[in-house]
Simulated scan of single mutants.
Amino acid sequence: MSLVVNNNMMAANAARNLNTSYSALSTSTERLSSGLRINSSSDDAAGLAVRELMRSDVATINQGVRNANDGISMIQTADGALSVVDEKLIRMKELAEQASTGTYTDSQRQIIDDEYQAMASEITRIASATDFNGIHLLNGNLGGTGMTIHFGTGNDEAEDKYAVTIDDCSAEALGVGIGVGENVAGATVSTQASAQAALEALDNAITSKDKVRANLGAMENRLSATISNLEIQAENLQAAESRISDVDVATEMTEYTKQQIITQMAVSMLSQANSLPQMALSLIG
Rank of each mutant, 00 (worst) to 15 (best):
M1S: 06
S2V: 10
V4R: 01
M9W: 00
A12T: 00
A12V: 00
A24W: 08
L25V: 12
S28E: 14
T29L: 11
R31C: 10
S33H: 02
L36V: 05
R37I: 06
D43P: 12
A45H: 11
A45N: 06
A46G: 10
A46N: 08
A49T: 15
A49I: 09
V50Y: 04
L53E: 12
S56M: 11
V58C: 13
A59R: 10
T60F: 13
I61K: 07
Q63F: 05
N67C: 09
A68V: 13
M74Q: 10
Q76V: 02
G80D: 07
V84L: 07
V85D: 11
D86A: 10
D86M: 10
E87M: 06
E87K: 09
I90F: 08
R91N: 10
M92V: 10
K93V: 09
S100W: 01
S100M: 04
T101M: 03
G102K: 02
T105W: 07
Q110M: 14
I111P: 01
D113K: 03
A118S: 15
A118P: 02
S121T: 14
I123E: 06
I126Y: 09
A127N: 08
I135E: 00
H136V: 02
L137Y: 03
L142Q: 04
G143L: 03
G144I: 00
T148H: 01
H150T: 12
F151L: 01
G154Q: 03
D156G: 10
D160A: 04
Y162A: 12
Y162R: 11
A163P: 04
I166W: 01
D167S: 15
A171C: 13
G175C: 06
V176E: 07
V184D: 08
Q192L: 05
Q192T: 05
A195V: 07
L199W: 00
L199N: 07
A201T: 07
I206S: 15
I206M: 12
T207A: 15
T207D: 15
R213A: 14
A214N: 15
G217S: 15
T226W: 02
I227V: 10
N229R: 02
L230V: 01
I232E: 04
E235W: 00
N236H: 01
L237C: 00
S242P: 06
R243L: 04
I244M: 01
D246L: 03
D246S: 02
E255G: 06
T263S: 15
T263M: 13
M265D: 15
S268E: 15
M269I: 14
M269N: 14
L270A: 11
L270Q: 13
L270Y: 13
N274W: 06
L281V: 12
L283Y: 13
